[in-house]
């Protein structure tokens, strides 16, 4: 990627959002049309570092998310490239009409970088959880949707968002993520899944914090069960990598999707759509939040509670490996 090469040495101490802030500052240095906007969350979302470097280029609108997204659209109408940051729940729900009508409908060049995604702000409860955004944002025409797996991927995604004209939504977590990539040099390309583990027995397709868990689960499956699981990091939910999904259907015939999101409408649904339309049979399981408002707790605890941490993935993988779907031609007893 042009001009971007973060190594583990200078970034080990940075949280995912801090890597976003750093990337944004680098972009701003090169491109005077880059500006930042936030709604009293400069510190929490880490967009604040832009203001430390260029005070006049970070606009804090106060606690007013509708104005925030509307103002970003206004600036984009005049040729600027606004990066907007607030918590995912407020970006995609409080200000959704502005996102829909002002930004996506007009196909404006606004980059929406939302933090505290999924259940990453677990203790804060439902008002601060965001397990609906992938579903919402991927149904916005014109909008690209990216869920990076960790800090390095966030740096790549933010750079790619700048290079891609039109609205882009990136969802990252609060705080630190488990490290998936040591640096930014692993061939990130918007819209192209990254294979993390080779396998032909089943495929685990994951995004965001689930990528790390999926890769760990694949290691266990290989060493303990002798099962070879392919792991795909599907960082871009839209446009989805159809080719990688169809190849997985063809090669492995078993697919598990894992996401820090409601099982309805997110990554699992996006994969299911591609699969169903292909007409090819495939054993399939979606892991994520089971269509409920989550209990409160630490992010790790919640992922475990709802069965999409490493252990949850292992259990589902074993179940799927034991399914006799290929031999079972008798549908009468199942309908």
């Amino acid at each position: 990627m042009g001009g971007l090469n973060y190594t583990i040495l200078d970034t080990a101490k940075l949280s995912t959002a801090e890597l976003y802030g750093k990337t944004l500052c680098d972009l701003a240095e090169e491109h005077p049309e880059v500006v930042g906007l936030t709604a009293d969350l400069a510190k929490s979302t880490k967009i604040g570092v832009l203001g430390e470097k260029y005070p006049e280029r970070l606009i804090n609108v106060g606690i007013a998310e509708q104005n925030l997204l509307g103002a970003a659209a206004g600036m984009a109408l005049n040729g600027m490239v606004p990066f907007v940051s607030t918590f995912a729940v407020f970006m995609t729900m409080r200000a959704l009409d502005q996102v829909h009508t002002d930004i996506c409908y007009q196909n404006l060049n606004v980059k929406m970088i939302a933090t505290h995604g999924g259940l990453s702000f677990g203790q804060a409860g439902t008002t601060h959880h965001c397990t609906e955004d992938i579903s919402i944002m991927r149904s916005m025409a014109n909008c690209k949707v990216i869920i990076p797996a960790d800090g390095m991927e966030t740096a790549n995604a933010v750079q790619a968002a700048y290079e891609t004209p039109g609205p882009v939504y990136i969802r990252i977590n609060r705080g630190f993520d488990q490290k998936v990539y040591d640096n930014t040099e692993y061939g990130y390309e918007l819209g192209k899944a990254v294979q993390m583990h080779e396998g032909t027995d089943l495929t685990i397709i994951a995004c965001g914090s689930a990528v790390w868990s999926a890769r760990e689960a694949a290691k266990v499956l290989e060493s303990v069960d002798g099962v070879k699981a392919r792991v795909l990091n599907m960082h871009t939910i839209k446009p989805i990598d159809r080719e990688a999904i169809l190849k997985a259907v063809h090669d492995t015939r078993r697919i598990i999707t894992v996401e820090d999101h409601n099982v309805i409408g997110g990554l699992g649904s996006a994969v299911a759509e591609v699969m169903a339309e292909s007409g090819k049979a495939c054993a399939f399981k979606r892991l994520g939040v089971p269509d409920t408002f989550s209990i409160i707790g630490l992010h790790e605890d919640l992922m475990s509670h709802y069965g999409y941490d490493v252990n949850g993935i292992l259990a589902s993988a074993r179940e799927l490996m034991g399914a006799d779907f290929e031999e079972d031609d008798d549908w009468d007893d199942e309908i």
């Binding site: 606690i63 439902t126 008002t127 209990i295 409160i296």
Partner: peptide, 27 residues
């Protein structure tokens, strides 16, 4: 704030007796 607690950072009407409405998203 503990995992599984009735009480989280922003209170939930369905879990907290005496609370008249859930809140946490400002405005």
């Amino acid at each position: 704030n503990h995992t599984h607690s009735q009480l989280g950072m922003h209170l939930d009407k369905n879990k907290v007796p005496g609370l008249d409405a859930s809140s946490g998203s400002l405005g």
